[in-house]
C-alpha cells in the first residue's frame, strides 16, 4: 500500500437545491394572476464532481461565486442530499462556516460550555479545557462579555476555537479564516497542522489566494459545478487568476 489512505471519496456527485422565487409584483397583480403561492426552481449547484481526499492533506477549493464550493461542503457533511453519485468517508466531517454567533446573549465563556457539550465533551472536560480554549481564541480579557458585543474577528476566533476543541478527523472550513487577523491565522494554521498530523484531512474554501498558497497541498478549481482543474497550488492559482471569466476572483 504505497498510496496514501483516502479519508473522503466523492464520486460523480450531483447536488441541486431549491430556491424560492419571489415574483416581482404587487399584491394586486398577485391576486389578479391568482397565484400567490411561492414558486421555486431547482438550481444544479454541483454537477458530477469526483475527487479523493487523503490523509495528512489540506485541500483548497477555489472558484467563482456560485461554482458550488459551499454546496459541495454541505453535501459532504450530509446537510444537502445528493441527486446522484456518492460521498463516502471515514467519519462525519465537521463543517466550520461563517455563521455569526452561537448564543449572542450569553458570554463567551458560556458559549464555550454550550459548544463543548454539543461536541460531546462532559461538563468537567469543558471546564478543564476552558483556559486553553480561551487562550486559543485570544479572548482572555473579553470572555465574560456577551458574544453579541464581539467584533466579527473575535466571533470568528471563538467559533473556530470551540469547533476545533476536539480535533476533528475531517475538517471543512468555509471562508471561516477570512475575517481573522494575522495572529488568528497563525493559530488556525496550528490547528490545521494538528488535524493533519493526526492522520486527518482539511478542506479549505476561500477566495483569498494567499490562504490557498499558505495552507494547501493541493487545489481543486470548481467552475459551474464541475472540476475544472486539480493540482499544485501555485499552478492552479496562477491559471485561475489568469482566467478570463468576469467574476473569477
Amino acid at each position: 500500500m504505497s498510496d496514501p489512505a483516502v479519508t473522503v471519496e466523492v464520486r460523480d456527485a450531483h447536488v441541486s437545491y431549491r430556491v424560492f422565487e419571489e415574483p416581482a409584483m404587487g399584491l394586486k397583480q398577485g391576486f389578479a394572476r391568482g397565484r400567490m403561492r411561492r414558486q421555486y426552481r431547482m438550481i444544479p449547484a454541483v454537477q458530477g464532481v469526483t475527487l479523493d481526499l487523503f490523509e495528512h492533506e489540506t485541500l483548497g477549493l477555489i472558484g467563482p461565486n456560485g461554482a458550488g464550493k459551499s454546496t459541495l461542503l454541505a453535501a459532504m457533511t450530509g446537510l444537502l442530499p445528493l441527486r446522484s453519485g456518492s460521498i463516502r468517508g471515514r467519519s462525519r466531517p465537521s463543517l466550520l462556516g461563517v455563521s455569526s454567533v452561537l448564543r449572542p446573549a450569553l458570554s463567551g465563556r458560556r458559549n464555550i460550555l454550550i459548544g463543548g457539550l454539543a461536541l460531546g465533551f462532559t461538563r468537567a472536560e469543558v471546564e478543564r479545557r476552558m483556559d486553553e480554549i480561551i487562550d486559543f481564541a485570544g479572548l482572555r480579557a473579553d470572555i465574560d462579555r456577551p458574544m453579541r458585543t464581539y467584533s466579527s474577528g473575535m466571533r470568528a476566533r471563538l467559533r473556530f476555537a470551540i469547533a476545533t476543541a476536539r480535533i476533528p478527523e475531517i475538517l471543512l472550513i468555509d471562508e471561516a479564516l477570512t475575517v481573522g487577523d494575522e495572529e488568528f491565522r497563525r493559530l488556525a494554521a496550528d490547528r490545521i497542522d494538528d488535524v493533519r498530523s493526526a492522520s486527518g484531512s482539511v478542506v479549505l474554501v476561500t477566495h483569498n489566494m494567499n490562504e490557498i498558497r499558505r495552507f494547501c497541498d493541493r487545489v481543486v478549481w470548481l467552475d459551474e459545478g464541475r472540476v475544472r482543474a486539480v493540482g499544485d497550488p501555485a499552478d492552479i492559482v496562477d491559471s485561475y487568476l489568469a482566467a478570463p471569466s468576469p467574476n473569477s476572483r
Binding site: T77, R92, P93, S94, L95, L96, G97, S99, S100, V101, L102, R103, P104, I114, G115, A118, L119, G120, R159, I162, A163
Partner: peptide, 11 residues
C-alpha cells in the same frame, strides 16, 4: 433560535 450553533457544530 439555535441556527448559529447548528451551523457551527455537528451534533
Amino acid at each position: 433560535q439555535n441556527m448559529g450553533l447548528i451551523r457551527s457544530i455537528q451534533f
